[in-house]
């Protein structure tokens, strides 16, 4: 027997990233902005998407791929507001691109302006998986504590926007918005910060404006043929 060394030098997820890039470009070319929405469980992802759909009703077309370990409860909540497809991971703690592609076989996106991928509630593993998003958004609810960004650096480093949710509870919890923003900006200085309350609709208009701006930039980039990679 002879030992042979094969040099590889590539990310283990290289093939998945290639698939994600291909899908990102495809959806971008048809004018669909893809938003990967991440947070810990219960931070208010579904409520935010519900409020977003209500805000945009009749003006922008959105659809949602919603990921959960089990049940289609979130899909049922969103179904009255927009097209939605439940992705059930069967116990896996995050979504991967093959499951997203399966979901898109059942969800028509041809005339969709904004496609949200509501990830499984988890601040760790989903940070490592590219789901073909143009924008990655992390939610941090005020009940979780303002020290979370530094504890989950990969999630905050790889996001473009930080949504601080449940701001109506601020008078009742020891959460400093300034401290949370400062901590997050140490990790990712370019993070756009958007405080919101989905129940009272405070901040929802600004959140929607942010996404409209992102889509506007996507359309401009697509027209001039630049790369749409997000890292």
């Amino acid at each position: 027997m002879t030992t042979k060394t094969i040099t590889v030098q590539r990310d283990v997820k290289a093939e998945l990233r290639r698939q994600a890039e291909e899908l990102r470009q495809h959806l971008g070319r048809q004018g669909t902005l893809v938003i990967n929405v991440l947070s810990s469980p219960g931070a208010g992802k579904t409520s935010l998407l519900q409020a977003t759909a209500e805000h945009w009703a009749g003006r922008h077309r959105m659809a949602v791929l919603v990921g959960d370990l089990e049940t289609d409860r979130d899909a049922q909540r969103l179904a009255p507001h927009c097209p939605v497809e439940q992705l059930t991971t069967g116990g896996a703690c995050h979504l991967e691109i093959p499951l997203v592609k399966q979901g898109l076989e059942k969800l028509s996106t041809a005339d969709i302006d904004f496609l949200f991928i509501e990830n499984v509630g988890n601040l760790v593993c989903p940070a490592s998986h590219d789901l073909a998003e143009h924008v990655r958004v992390v939610l941090l609810s005020v009940t979780e504590g303002d020290d979370k960004p530094g504890k989950y650096p990969k999630m905050f480093r790889t996001s473009q926007a930080l949504v601080i949710s449940k701001t109506d509870l601020l008078p009742h919890v020891p959460f400093s918005v300034d401290a949370a923003i400062d901590d997050a900006h140490q990790i990712q200085p370019d993070l756009t910060v958007l405080p919101i309350c989905s129940l009272s609709k405070d901040g929802i208009a600004q959140w929607c404006q942010f996404l409209e701006g992102q889509r506007h930039e996507l359309l401009a980039r697509t027209v001039i043929g630049e790369s749409m990679v997000t890292t």
Binding site: T3, T5, I6, V8, R10, D11
Partner: peptide, 9 residues
Amino acid sequence: FRLLEVEIE
């Protein structure tokens, strides 16, 4: 998480 090299017989 990178695969650097593989030694095969």
